[in-house]
Design a protein around this nucleic acid. Structure first.
Lengths: 228, 228
DNA sequence: ATGAAAATATGTACTTACTACACATTAGTT
DNA sequence: AACTAATGTGTAGTAAGTACATATTTTCAT
């Protein structure tokens, strides 16, 4: 057993010559939106020959002077133009072979945004929204990262007012229910769903009704305070 | 916005000269045990002058050839001599200023062991068990890491058979309840607690009873299969 | 104008989980 | 034999979750 425990300065010095060359640190953001009644994730074409044609999450190397959380906010803002959105760290992925160019460990975050507010240029062939459902293979271990984030999200949706971040300011309860169903992967009973949401007191009735809908319009609600 | 997105090889190359010198990667293990009716954590005297006299968690730099999870298992085995114990990744901590010797980000894990099985040499002045309750200040951000792990643990104890890892093979329900109370920081009603545990079917009655106890002895149980 | 279509809005009975709470029993000690 | 300090157990009340059906409102087609 090593007699120099923990992180003494000497150990850091030592590693700076042995392994700083070999270990890279990145953040990857699972940026989720909701459109066409499906969860969507913002992805980009991988530029590595090993993953030619595959989609990858949005990430970047962490800069020496920035905190982890800052790095993920930076990626998010660079890619979506949005600030002050929900962002949560989920897991660090660090298997040896996860990056073909060398040793890179990544800290995964997920973020929830209203896809309508995403005003950056999206290009079908480079940066684009894809339904989560349709992404079977992804570059690196990104499908696993995505699944980990989706699982975390689904565990939290009834505890915290998260999903409202994916919807426009005003929405009908039906929209909300369909979104919950997308995230949970199961259908919900309408009456029970409304009861469950009602007791949380997350919503305020706007007084407005749905427009230009081909049936009886529903009331529009807004969230009192979504988690940021 | 950067025109080279994500993690292309070029970016990794680039960072290897800019920042691999500056970013270190470590794991820290919150190794928990239970003794004297209190949660205990295995800590070591910090060897940094900045934290002279303070206790720190057990950690080490991740080696270039090992996975994150391997690194934490290695630390755990080096420090406790134990293999095949429960270990879970909790969170990555990466603020700029968290390590005085330079930029070091750390991945925190927590582990649950039967303190009786810890046969390594513990030295009151270097490596030792401390009641969680008594550690007010710790080196680095280690008190925050500890709290994050304790919170995670408390959220899981009724969903997974975790706490049994802290107890000997045979234990009385009273021991178990006291352990739950330590972890949750609240007292529990005995009848309700037993009911709640019973419906999970985690336990098997050994047929044995407590010995040399100064009152009516309780039945001894064992766990069918604790989470590893 | 009327009827059909498609959705909204809502309540109740049932079951399951959680909470509060008290008393008889057992082994050890004196 | 009496005392001490625990174990072991059940019930009533409340809260949360589940299964399920009907009347209402608007648009659209005729």
């Amino acid at each position: 057993m090593n007699s120099s425990p923990s992180l003494k300065s000497a150990a850091v010095e030592k590693q700076s010559h042995q392994s700083y060359f070999k270990i890279g640190l990145s953040v990857d953001c699972v940026i989720l939106g909701y459109a066409n009644k499906e969860l969507q994730v913002l992805v980009i074409k991988s530029d590595l020959k090993e993953f030619a044609g595959q989609w990858s999450l949005l990430g970047d190397l962490v800069r020496p002077e920035e905190d982890l959380d800052n790095a993920s906010y930076r990626v998010l803002e660079e890619r979506t133009g949005l600030k002050n959105v929900y962002l949560e760290q989920v897991h660090a992925f660090g298997t040896r072979d996860r990056h073909p160019s060398g040793r890179v460990i990544t800290i995964a975050y997920y973020s929830l945004i209203d896809i309508q507010n995403h005003k950056m240029q999206v290009n079908e062939h480079e940066l684009t929204w894809k339904p989560v459902r349709t992404l079977k293979k992804m570059a690196f271990d990104h499908r696993k990262i995505l699944d980990t984030c989706l699982l975390r999200l689904s565990e939290q949706v009834f505890d915290k007012p998260l999903l409202f971040n994916l919807l426009p300011v005003k929405f009908a309860l039906r929209d909300l229910q369909e979104l919950y169903e997308s995230v949970l992967g199961e259908t919900l009973d309408r009456r029970n769903f409304r009861k469950k949401i009602a007791v949380k007191h997350w919503l305020r009735d706007t007084g407005d009704m749905e427009k230009s809908v081909v049936h009886r319009p529903g009331r529009l609600y807004t969230v009192k305070a979504a988690s940021k």
